[in-house]
Computed example of a mutant assay.
Amino acid sequence: MGSLNMMMDRMPDIESDCLYSAARILREAARSSFILKMPTASHQSDKYSDTLADAVRYSRRHGTAVTVHTLGTRAKTSGTYRARFFEGGTRKRYQRRYRGRPLEHKRYLGYIKPVNFFMSAVTSASAQAMSEMEKILQEHIKNIQRMTETT
């Protein structure tokens, strides 16, 4: 009965350990996928204080979930917001005005093709993340069993 009470007391910490370890695995997989598909993502720019690969982050725990995302930070000197355009792509863009005056014929500016680095990384690393969560849970259970056996 003592081990069950101890398990209930430590369950929030155990859950956090499992969630954050899985989030770290997914984040690193997404970063490496981003750099693999777009090698310049790891280069430092003169304009921004960070790299594009720094946009892959995870959030704080909300209930029983930790969100891994590519939205970057909202810091003033950060350029990580650009990563979302490479993940999902952009629509075709046209220039309609030049120096405030409408153009007779709109000028085609192009678009960004989606790289899809994030979803491919999540699908490939999700099994590893689940196994890591199971491993951490088993370690915590064994530690609690050892502690109850010694008391």
Rank of each mutant, 00 (worst) to 15 (best):
S126P: 03
E15H: 11
R97L: 12
C18T: 12
G100K: 01
S126A: 08
R84T: 03
V122A: 01
S49L: 06
R24S: 14
K37T: 00
G2N: 14
I141A: 11
D50E: 07
R101K: 15
S131L: 13
S49A: 11
S45Q: 08
S3M: 14
F117M: 03
Q128V: 09
I141N: 05
T64G: 12
R101T: 10
E28N: 12
A23K: 02
L109R: 02
L109C: 05
R10L: 15
V66C: 07
E134F: 10
R101V: 13
Y20M: 14
S33A: 08
S33G: 02
Q44R: 08
A53F: 03
D17I: 14
T151C: 12
E139T: 10
V56A: 00
A22T: 04
R74S: 09
T64V: 09
H69L: 04
S16L: 14
T40G: 07
Y81T: 04
N143Q: 11
T150K: 13
K142F: 10
S59D: 09
P102Y: 09
L103H: 02
A29Q: 00
R84M: 05
M6Q: 14
M38L: 14
K47D: 12
P39Q: 02
G2Y: 11
R24M: 13
T90I: 04
K135I: 07
N116D: 08
L19A: 04
L4Q: 13
T64R: 09
S59E: 06
D50Q: 05
L52R: 00
L4E: 15
V68E: 02
E104V: 15
G88F: 09
L137K: 04
K92I: 05
D17Q: 14
Y48R: 00
T151P: 11
P39W: 04
I136E: 08
H140D: 06
A83N: 00
E28W: 00
E15F: 12
G89S: 02
Q95C: 06
S3C: 13
I25N: 05
Q145Y: 08
F86A: 00
R10F: 11
M1V: 12
G79Q: 00
T151G: 13
E139Q: 13
D17W: 13
A53C: 06
G2L: 14
D9E: 15
S126D: 02
E104G: 14
R61C: 05
Y98E: 13
T151S: 14
L103Q: 03
S78D: 08
S49I: 09
M11C: 11
T40S: 13
